[in-house]
């Protein structure tokens, strides 16, 4: 009886165990990006740009050339990388603190210019690496270390919906929000990331894939309950869907 390996670690991931907490969705999203890189056969031509936050060590996990950017600067660094080597396949991997607070200017302007790279934006509504502080994406009423009574919109404003904001610009070719808290959504997210990479390969400009993610540790929930919280709390404010498609 002959058997074949139908699922295993993609080549575009190193075999280094990640530092992510149990149940954190970063690992799933990393793997999806790596699967797409393998599927498109571009591993040896890809340069990834890691950001600051929990995903800072992404440069260790992706088995492609990697550049570590300072906090929020990944889209500007990726601009330099892509302008430096237009034939490379370039992606940034950024969390919500990085992309939607300190790096807002960089992502908005990279998107406005239609820079030809792919942005993977992981939104878990909190600063994870520093221990669970309020993020620009923290939901109204959500308790964090810096909003202990729950986010007060009178004090902190309402959370930013980055996909909707980016989709108003003419530069990006593709803007979508997905999640990875069910097997079907994991599959949809892989397709979305693949589409964004394919658009880059076709020279069509910036692809922006926002992926709703969990932070079991800082949300104070179990891994399974965190997935349910994405449904009950995040998706109502951050609806899934395609916001722009050229």
């Amino acid at each position: 009886m002959e058997e074949k390996l139908v699922f295993s670690r993609p080549e575009a991931l190193t075999d280094m165990p990640t530092h992510y907490c149990p149940g954190c969705h970063h690992g799933i999203i990393h793997r999806l990006v790596a699967e797409v890189i393998d599927e498109l056969g571009v591993r040896e031509n890809t340069v990834g740009v890691a950001s600051v936050g929990c995903s800072i060590l992404a440069y260790d996990y992706f088995n492609v050339d990697m550049v570590g950017a300072l906090h929020g600067r990944a889209p500007a660094v990726a601009t330099g990388v892509k302008r430096g080597r237009p034939d490379s396949v370039v992606f940034t991997y950024q969390g919500d603190g990085d992309l939607a607070a300190i790096g807002t200017a960089e992502i908005i302007h990279a998107a406005a210019r239609g820079e030809n790279f792919t942005v993977v934006f992981v939104n878990n509504a909190i600063y994870g690496m520093t221990g669970g502080q309020m993020a620009p994406t923290t939901l109204d009423g959500q308790r964090t270390q810096t909003s202990p009574a729950g986010r007060d919109p009178h004090l902190a404003g309402h959370p930013l919906r980055m996909s909707e904001l980016i989709a108003t610009l003419s530069g990006p070719s593709f803007v979508t929000r997905t999640a990875v808290n069910t097997p079907a959504r994991i599959n949809q997210t892989r397709k979305a990331i693949k589409k964004a990479f394919e658009l880059q390969l076709a020279g069509r400009g910036l692809g922006f894939v926002e992926v709703l993610s969990t932070c079991p540790t800082n949300w104070g929930l179990g891994a399974v309950e965190s997935g349910q919280w994405v449904d009950s709390h995040m998706i109502p404010y951050y609806p899934l869907g395609v916001f722009k498609e050229d």
Partner: peptide
């Protein structure tokens, strides 16, 4: 059944899945 849903859900790429050819 080798559906690999466990492997695709795993955040840490723990699981390899084999199926009969």
């Amino acid at each position: 059944t080798g559906c690999a849903i466990c492997a695709r859900t795993c955040p840490d790429v723990v699981i390899d899945v084999y199926r009969e050819a």
